[in-house]
Design a protein around this nucleic acid. Structure first.
Length: 453
RNA sequence: GUGGAUGUAGCUCAGUUUGGUUAGAGCGCUGGAUUGUGGUUCCAGAGGUCGCCGGUUCAAGCCCGGUCUUCCACCCCA
């Protein structure tokens, strides 16, 4: 016997039940995206490596899946040439394509490439898989779907507001309690300016991000080890120790960031957004979280992250504003903002909480028992009538024992079974059995359609 | 990428400590009791080269090494 077949690490097969549930998530999200006026696009699974590299930081580059060039690479080079290839250079010589890491960067590429046909501001949504060479765990896969919504070509904060509304609506419709966290990169920039370490943005945000996990002392120690001046750390301390409501935090920052132009600008954006939210409150908890930094280094303004309030699984949605992502592809001065829903994690959360709707899980509504050729011929027109009326129905393909056919209906969770034998044909009726109750009734084809519509 | 666990029937798991003849259970599956009635019950049956490769041994599911998978922490994030 050959070895059992398998699939690569971090990838998954989806069963019919799983697909039904996944589609429930995709359908819900897609429907909401549409009602806000977003348009669908798709981009290829692979991009030029040059489009992907350097957009996600050093860590991100390592997590890119690279595609080996086709053809015999070695053949084109002499042994001498081969031997003189510098270490680490080989990769770029034998691979020029990679699998997409997210949908935002390919979108930026798309916008630049199609700039002449796009009507700005361009609102698009995109639901496709992405790939990351991460080490898999629960809620962390090497192939997973993202559902992105972005607006590009508009600086207005109303876009941020709209995205918050979308996030709130998606999770409310899916029946999940979530916390929507927001922050602003400009405020973080303001903070590092105020403490006199304008170049240490990354170190400081990473440290702030760890605050909840490791505590104040360890964070300060780490900053010291990273070479931050003692004086700077001292000035950062009040930010780290800040507690209380979003409103209180904003009050504090008002004083703290005084004099930092960019910091004040970020704070003003935050308070405007909170103002809009106050006028039209979200169902979800909505809060300012200064420890929210987000790694993807193209964000420049608002940043968002959504976490489940009921299941611990990391963020299930995230995003932010990027002022110059298209600049890398040669189109300057176009600002965008967007968020990405992690369908696979949302699936895990819904599964754990058992919140998938039951009604989606049955497809076929009616099964005709197969008594034989003559009866089957009689049934086909009735099947046609049912299907034209949108009632999913099927005839058991084999003339099997009744017990077997009933068991099939049972296993498939088909709610109704129709019996059409000699007697029924003669009387022009169908015996309809409701599986749950066991009740049976005799109906004409028209009555049957009415009954199941 | 770093550290730590895990893998026995379709599924959930015993058995591994002290290596020793045919590897177990429950659920599921197949058939029958019930040849136009499923879910309950009863009876019978099928199904495993103990993740894979190698080593130690007279003998390995059990000990050792490697490898893959899944999971946990870090990292990062969806």
């Amino acid at each position: 016997m050959a070895d059992k077949p398998s699939i690569p690490k971090g990838t998954r097969d989806f069963t019919p039940l799983e697909m039904t549930r996944r589609n429930h998530i995709f359908d819900t999200i897609r429907k909401i995206f549409k009602t806000y006026g977003y348009l669908p696009i798709e981009t290829p699974a692979m991009e030029h490596l040059s489009s992907l590299m350097g957009k996600y930081g050093d860590e991100g580059d390592k997590l890119l899946f690279k595609i080996l060039n086709s053809g015999d690479f070695k053949n084109k080079l002499s042994d001498d040439e081969l031997a003189t290839i510098p270490a680490g250079k080989l990769g770029t010589m034998i691979s020029e394509k990679g699998l997409r890491y997210d949908l935002t960067v390919p979108f930026a590429r798309y916008v630049v490439q199609h700039r002449n046909e796009i009507v700005f501001p361009f609102k698009r949504y995109q639901i496709q898989p992405v790939w990351r060479a991460d080490r898999p765990q629960r809620g962390r896969y090497r192939e997973f779907y993202q559902c992105d919504v972005d607006v590009i070509g508009s600086d207005s904060l109303l876009n941020e507001f709209e995205l918050i509304r979308i996030m709130d609506q998606v999770f409310s419709v899916l029946g999940l309690k979530v916390v929507i966290k927001m922050n602003n990169r400009k405020v973080l920039t303001g903070i590092v300016e105020m403490i006199g370490e304008p170049d240490r943005m990354i170190d400081v945000t990473v440290a702030i991000d760890k605050l909840e996990k490791v505590g104040l002392e360890k964070v300060m120690l780490e900053l010291e080890q990273k070479g931050l001046k003692r004086d700077s750390i001292k000035r950062l301390a009040p930010v780290l120790q800040m507690e209380g409501s979003s409103l209180k935090k904003m009050k504090f920052l008002e004083g703290y960031l005084e004099g930092s132009h960019i910091g004040e600008e970020g704070l003003s954006e935050i308070s405007q957004l909170f103002g809009l939210m106050e006028n039209d409150p979200a169902e979800a908890e909505f809060e300012l979280d200064l420890t929210l930094a987000r790694g993807l280094n193209y964000y420049t303004g608002s940043i968002f992250e959504v976490k489940s309030a009921e299941v611990q699984i990391g963020s299930i949605c995230g995003g932010g504003r990027y002022d110059d992502l298209t600049g890398i592809f040669g189109l300057d001065g176009v600002s965008g903002v967007g968020v990405s829903f992690g369908a696979d994690r949302i699936y895990d959360v819904l599964l754990q909480l058992d919140r998938f709707p039951r009604k989606d899980e049955m497809d076929t509504q009616l099964l005709f028992v197969n008594f034989g050729q003559r009866e089957a011929l009689h049934i086909f027109p009735i099947l046609g009538q049912l299907r034209k009326n949108g009632i999913a129905s099927e005839l058991y393909p084999d003339v099997a024992k009744m017990k077997k056919q009933m068991s099939y209906a049972n296993a498939r969770k088909i709610p109704f079974v129709a019996l059409v034998g000699e007697q029924e044909i003669e009387d022009g009726v169908i015996t309809l059995k409701e599986m749950e109750t066991g009740n049976q009734e005799r109906l004409t084809p028209d009555q049957l359609v009415d009954r199941l519509s």
